[in-house]
Simulated assay, not measured.
Amino acid sequence: MFYRLSGTFHTNYQADRKLWKIPADRWLVLTVFALAVLAPFLVSPLYLGSYVLPWIIWSAAALSLTLLMGMAGQLHFGFAAVMAIGAYSSIHLVRAGVPFEIALLLSGIIAAVIGAVFGAAALRVKGLYLVMATLAMQYLVDWVVVNVPWISGGAHATLRTPAVSFLFMDISSLASRYWLALAWAALITVFYLNVKRTSFGRSLVAIRDKDFAAAVIGVDPFKTKLMAFFTSSFLGGVSGAILAFCYYRAVTPEQFGFNVSIQLVAMVLVGGLGSVIGSYLGAGFVLLAPIFLTNLIAGLAASGWVPVSQNFLSHLPLVIYGAMIIGFLLFEPLGLAKIYDNIRKYFLVWPFRHARS
């Protein structure tokens, strides 16, 4: 069948290094990407701006964190602070007259430098101690953003994003902002898929599995972890700038609080550590599941099928959402990506159930 792995393999390096060795996988990726590009013409502006656009941006942010947590094995509970640095830096750079394209790169570099500084301070510790160090970064950045008026304007101030253009194209429309976010998500996806095949990616995996053994074979644990923090923070800073300009269009300190860091970690864990498709699935689950559950339960309550109070109705979706996350962690710890992989492997050998892929 066209979707099966068949033929002669491992005959040349070019064929063996393909990201998708099965032709059906390549066609599937191209189809999904084509549908993503045509999304402004296929869905209404309401669904595009409320569901698809934030899903794409948060998937890019989850991929940025996956590089650090999934590939390098370093916990980070302050990634929302990294995105906040990128968001506020890009706004102030654009207001200072810096072109938007350069402001995106500079905001990523600023976030990378600050993230690497905190990462360097945290690299001597592991586990819960590393979590506490990244939490310190989250709370310190939150305090600076709130209490330094020239950054955010104050605790309750709203900082609006200026009108900008990208590569001489106006991005004031919803479709143009969506395509910019999609291009950034696609760029991170291609980067992540290819970095796993480089010496840097293999060093990250070695550090994740056992840093002492990696040091024995010549991998510098401190340098590799520092580069992981720097790279992940750079991607997160640019993702924060994209989030500010393409989705929020006005930022407040509450948009990058500790709860956002927890949501990002949940996206990575529920989707599957170290998985590209898991980042997209995890971001969609964490971001969209509460919305769909709220609408479903509200509809059932309005029709009389679920006679509950309004207070209980407002909290019930969160209860169901938390139960679903616990269920995934208990019954499929490898996340949604593993469920997708199981389904894919089933069809690779179907209808020969006795065979194993």
Rank of each mutant, 00 (worst) to 15 (best):
R160M: 04
V164P: 11
I171A: 07
S172A: 13
S172H: 10
L174H: 06
L174V: 04
A175K: 06
R177Q: 10
R177V: 07
Y178N: 04
L180R: 01
L180C: 02
A181M: 11
A183S: 15
A183C: 12
W184A: 09
I188D: 15
V190Q: 11
F191A: 00
Y192N: 14
Y192E: 13
V195N: 07
K196Y: 09
K196L: 07
R197V: 09
R197S: 14
T198A: 07
T198G: 08
S199W: 04
S199H: 09
S203T: 04
I207F: 02
I207V: 09
I207G: 05
R208V: 05
D209K: 01
K210T: 06
A215S: 15
V216I: 15
I217T: 11
G218S: 07
D220F: 09
D220P: 07
F222Y: 15
T224Y: 14
T224W: 12
K225D: 12
L226Y: 06
A228P: 00
F234Y: 11
F234R: 08
L235E: 10
G237V: 00
V238N: 01
A241K: 02
I242R: 12
I242L: 06
F245C: 04
F245T: 00
C246G: 04
C246A: 08
C246W: 00
Y248I: 00
R249I: 05
P253A: 03
E254D: 13
E254L: 01
F256R: 01
Q263D: 13
V265N: 08
A266F: 08
A266C: 06
M267V: 07
L269D: 07
V270P: 13
G271Y: 03
